[in-house]
Each structure stands twice: as structure tokens, then as C-alpha cells.
Nucleic acid binder design. Structure first.
Lengths: 253, 253
DNA sequence: AACTATTGTCTTGTATATCAGATGATAGTT
DNA sequence: AACTATCATCTGATATACAAGACAATAGTT
């Protein structure tokens, strides 16, 4: 069972599909069909055929007059089904919304997905210069407070295997040492609040609190994104609200 | 380019995937992995392998302690992307909500998908015995008023090719004649209100109004589901609101 | 413990989906 | 109209994903 060897061999249709969907999500708007083969580093004939099949199935849709494609109605329906069944996301999204309105700050519901942190839901704060993050965004793990929580229970080896080297470079080119990151993660164990400051940019700090599942494992995190120069009293209040939200969403045994 | 001949040959992975997703949506809740090969009429080895790939990609997720799977977080994210970009669905859903609140009746946003009508969004009415329909539900075309609108511009041959014979049987076992249905569809041309009564069950009627795209073609319909014994004055008012909603959502050239 | 039923993994042959590249279609420019 | 560039479809070869079925593991029953 060899790992992918990046040889010249063929790629599975299913992997092409996964990359295609992911690419569409990254771009965030309809994409010209003709640009896809290049963007996905795939043969034209393959992509045209796959897109045809997915369009027939309602997974993709053709948009506009030039040949653009984007997610289709089936994806929407399946998304609704996911939401309906997934209690955490449903409740978490609501909690994030109310937390944001309560505090006036941007808050997010984050989960781990492979080697990235995914923002499942976000609600923007009410500050004039609000810090925005897009729902569906995927962020390298070393950049955030919530990722330190999401990885808290993992062994050093597991963490190492999840972090690709380029993710250790922060947006301002500073490097995070993998050992420091692992230490951060383990320091997050049994804490109900993790803070990071100035990682993603120089003027924001992140506060994160864990959400536990029935087995006592961390399955998600709520994160508040704040300006760094925030009034101490407000910060204190905000922290309490955050911790309370995380507690509410955790499954208690 | 032969049509599928139902011979013993293989089926493409992509088609298996489409069926799998559709099946999950039909069931509407997590499904045991072991039941899938039977349900999808596919080999075990194929399904196990596909599910593994899709789970790795976040399209599916493993749920619970026994080996159940369901839609994954990526589907949710992609669904959000779809919603964000798709003006019709976004505005249509909002309009359906307000129409429902205005009238107190159940209303739906419907589009055509292959040979079924799909409910993209629904809002329940406020009646004590409200008539419910589930978002994501797929309904045979001959059963609804909105489908008559959605097919209004189609030729008799096209309509015939879309209707499978079993869909001509109503829930109460009555049969719809295909010729009558085609006549209904064509009668719906240039109308802004189509009514059906007692099709899906004996005590409801449907009112539907078209939503036009820029090219003047019908791309969706809004549908109101009402009890059959409704007060005439209320019915009149409701019809006007419905038509107004459809007009609002239509693209004007 | 032996038996049965159910669920999950692994191996192997082959039908076929992928891929490279040719060809065809369309639009834009001189 | 001729020329270019871009976009889309088609064709044949073959690497491989699918499928069949053996095998292994687990749970439930007698």
C-alpha cells in the first residue's frame, strides 16, 4: 500500500472530482470550464467528461452564457440534509451567531479537516473595521488558537504528520517551530481558553474554546477574532461569554 | 454512443457516487455502510473503497459508533457556496419565507431536475393542521401545479421523454394520461397562475406561479399548498400575493 | 464451544475510464 | 477572406479502477 508517488501515472476520477469541488470552493464563484484543465493540472478530455457527468447529476451547474460552471442544486440540497442531521453544526452556528451579537465581535465555529482547519460558520462582528473570515475557508493549523485546541489530544507524531512544512510559515513569513507548535497544542489540554496574538496578522488576537463530544474528545472549537488593542474589561467579559458558549455546546456525560 | 444497456458491464465510479449521494438524501439520515452495497446494487469492494475515498475527502462523514455514514462537512461548505452565488435560490428562499408569513400558508420554491421536481426551499404555514413538504424532496412531475409551469415551454416529445410511466400514477393510484398532462403543461404557457386540486391528496390544492429568467424562460416556480376548503376571499388575496412574488423574482429584460 | 450470520478486508483479472493528441468549431483580428 | 487563438469534441491505446469472490473478523445464538 504505497503512498501516492507523484509518478506520471493516472489519477482516479474521484480524486479529480474532489479537487475540482475544492477548487470551485476556493475560487468562490463560477469558473470557466476551459480554465479547469490547467488549474487542476488535468487533461482536457478528462475534465470535460467529468464535468459533463457531474452536471448531468446536478452536482455542478452551468452558469451564464459563456461556459462557466459552479456548484449545482444537488449540492445545496445535500448541504441542507447535512445541516439537518448534524446537531453540532446546527446548534453551533446558532450559538456563534448569538455570541457574535452578544459581544459585537467576529466569531467562528471551527473543525479539523485533514491537515487544515475549516471554518464551518462565521458571524461578523459589528466593529467599524471588522475582521472578516469566510465560511468554508481553510486555514493552516499553526496559524490559529482553535487549531491548538483541535490538536490537543494528538500525539507529537500525529501532529507532525498533519503539518506540511509550508503551513509553518505565517502570513508575515515568520516560521513556527514544529516543536513549539506541538508544545502549544499539549499546553491546550484541559484548558477551556486558548489565546494567540499576532499570528495571522499583527493587529488581531484569537480566543478559542473547545467543544467536547460525548467521549470527552474535542470535536470543534469556537473562536473569537479581536483587535489586539481591546479594552481589558471588555476582553474579560467576552472571554466569559465565549467559555460559556463552548460549555453549552459540549456534550456532557 | 449507445444508451446504457443494463448489461452486466461495469458502472463508473462517478455514477456510483451520484447514486450514493442521492440515496443518502432519500434516506435522510445516517446509513449503515454495510447496507449500501445492497441498496445501490453494487459490489461490496467498490462501495467500501468509494466511501473511503469520499470520507477522506470530507464529502462523507462517519457517524456514531456503528459504521454509519452520511454527508460530510465539505458538502455543507459547498452548499453554502452555492447559496451565496445563486441569486435565484437566495432571493427565492427569502421570498418564500415572507410569502409564507404574509399568507400563513405553506409555500415552496421549485425547480426542475432531470425528471423530477425538486423543492429547493420550503416554509411551513401557520395553520393548525399544516401541510408539510420537505426541502430537498423530489416529486413526480404529473403530481404538481408547478411542474406544469416548469414544463410549459417543452415540446410534447420532450415532456414524454421526461415522464417515466410510474410517475403518472398519483398517490391514490389514479392514473394521469400523458396527453392530458401535456395539454395541462401547454395550457400553462403565458399564464401567471396554475392551479391543481386533489392530486397529491384529496384535501389540498396547489397554486403555482412562474419565475422567468432573462431569456424569458421559466426557471423556477413558487408554489402555495392550501387546504381545498379555503375561504374564497382569503384565496383571492393569497393568489395575488403569490403572483406578486413570482413577478418580483423574475428577471425583466 | 461450536455454529451461523453479518460485516469488513484483501487479492486478482479484465473491462474500461483516463489520457495524449488529433481534429473540429468558434471567435476575434488583420 | 485568411490567419490566430481559444475552446470543445473525438479517437485509440493502455494503465488501472471496478468487480468477483476468497478470506478474516466480529457479533449473536444454540
Amino acid at each position: 500500500m504505497r503512498e501516492k508517488k507523484q509518478q506520471v501515472g493516472r489519477e482516479r476520477g474521484i480524486d479529480r472530482i474532489l479537487k475540482l469541488l475544492s477548487y470551485l470552493n476556493d475560487v468562490g464563484q463560477p469558473v470557466r470550464l476551459s480554465e479547469l484543465p490547467q488549474a487542476l493540472n488535468a487533461p482536457k478530455s478528462t475534465i470535460y467528461e467529468l464535468v459533463r457527468a457531474l452536471t448531468d447529476g446536478g452536482i455542478l451547474e452551468q452558469i451564464g452564457n459563456d461556459n462557466k460552471i459552479y456548484f449545482g442544486r444537488m449540492i445545496h440540497l445535500y448541504g441542507i440534509s447535512y445541516m439537518r442531521e448534524n446537531a453540532l453544526i446546527r446548534r453551533g452556528a446558532a450559538e456563534v451567531d448569538s455570541l457574535s451579537e452578544l459581544t459585537g465581535e467576529t466569531s467562528e465555529l471551527c473543525v479539523l479537516n485533514r491537515n487544515r482547519q475549516v471554518i464551518m460558520h462565521t458571524h461578523l462582528g459589528s466593529r467599524p473595521m471588522r475582521i472578516s473570515s469566510q465560511s468554508g475557508g481553510q486555514i493552516p493549523l499553526p496559524w490559529t488558537a482553535s487549531a491548538r485546541l483541535l490538536l490537543a489530544q494528538f500525539s507529537p507524531a500525529e501532529i507532525k504528520s498533519l503539518i506540511v512544512t509550508e503551513d509553518l510559515t505565517l502570513p508575515d513569513k515568520r516560521k513556527v517551530k514544529i516543536e513549539d507548535f506541538i508544545a502549544d497544542c499539549h499546553a491546550a489540554r484541559d484548558k477551556n481558553l486558548v489565546e494567540t496574538s499576532g499570528l495571522i496578522n499583527s493587529f488581531t488576537q484569537c480566543l478559542a474554546t473547545p467543544i467536547f463530544d460525548m467521549r470527552g474528545e474535542i470535536q470543534a472549537a469556537i473562536c473569537l477574532v479581536l483587535p489586539i488593542d481591546i479594552e481589558a474589561q471588555h476582553l474579560q467579559k467576552v472571554k466569559q461569554f465565549l467559555i460559556e458558549s463552548g460549555r453549552k455546546l459540549s456534550m456532557h456525560s
